[in-house]
Amino acid sequence: MQESLQKRNWSGRAVLLLPYLWLVVFFLAPFVIVFKISLSQTAMAQPPYLPVFDLSTGWAGLREFAAQLSPDSFRLLFTDLIYLLSYLKSLQVAAISTIILLLIGYPFAYGIARAPRGWQPLLVMAVVLPFWTSFLIRVYAWINILQRDGLLNDVLMRLHIVDAPVSWLSSDTAIYIGMIYSYLPFMVLPLYAALEKMDETLLEAAADLGCPRWKTFWLVVVPLSLPGAAAGALLCFIPIVGEFVIPDLLGSSETLMIGQTLWNEFFANRDWPVASAIAVTLLVLLLVPMLFYERLQQRSLEGGR
């Protein structure tokens, strides 16, 4: 009896260990490597930076290695305006997109959650359906739709809403269209999950106590769906900040988002240290909303015991 209990304890611990192991191998270790590169200098070499970590040189080699590390790349990030502008641009696009996604996603999710039970799986399926096509292909399709002689201008001109073709592509509008289209499922699904598990008698109780429908929505439905909204906002905001494909294909080349700047440093300039510094800074930046969400969840967990 005692023994089997102990055994179960061990297997229980192993299960707990597994996600941590995963995080160490696939997140922490790569992060340490990237962080190390961000403190290095560019070099015309293979790999294109110095110093290179070499265990065979022993203790002295290690100390020499550490002495060569410097935060120069980070200093550059804060002195050259292009990086700051890229970060700001990314945050702006992510913030505005997330707000629009919330406004569009909420009625979507609410509609699905209030649909007849039998329909709901089908509607959820419809939300997820775009994932069956490659992300890249879907963004390319938007180029087709938004270009000068594309579908959108065609329709608008036929309906006599505009007289001459509008140039949609290579603009912030195109970026927002792409972002909102691509990330809508990530907003709708967690919102739906939160709205779907809400007890409908709560709405009846509110009505019974003299609360009209529209007010019930604000006093009961919205507060109870807040965790879903937070999860959806985070699921959209974080990847949008680092998004590369959508701004690169649909946006203009004037102001770059941070993902594009990073790509340029890495591939065009072959400046691995600066690219790494951009990545590290971005990660620290994104930690803020993540910690905020963590605290929100902690609070609801403590309450929901």
């Binding site: 009846e204 109780a205 509110a206 009505a207 019974d208 106590l209 003299g210 009209p212």
Partner: peptide
């Protein structure tokens, strides 16, 4: 329902 003088 929200105008009825009954409660449940």
């Amino acid at each position: 329902p929200h105008r009825r003088p009954v409660n449940m």
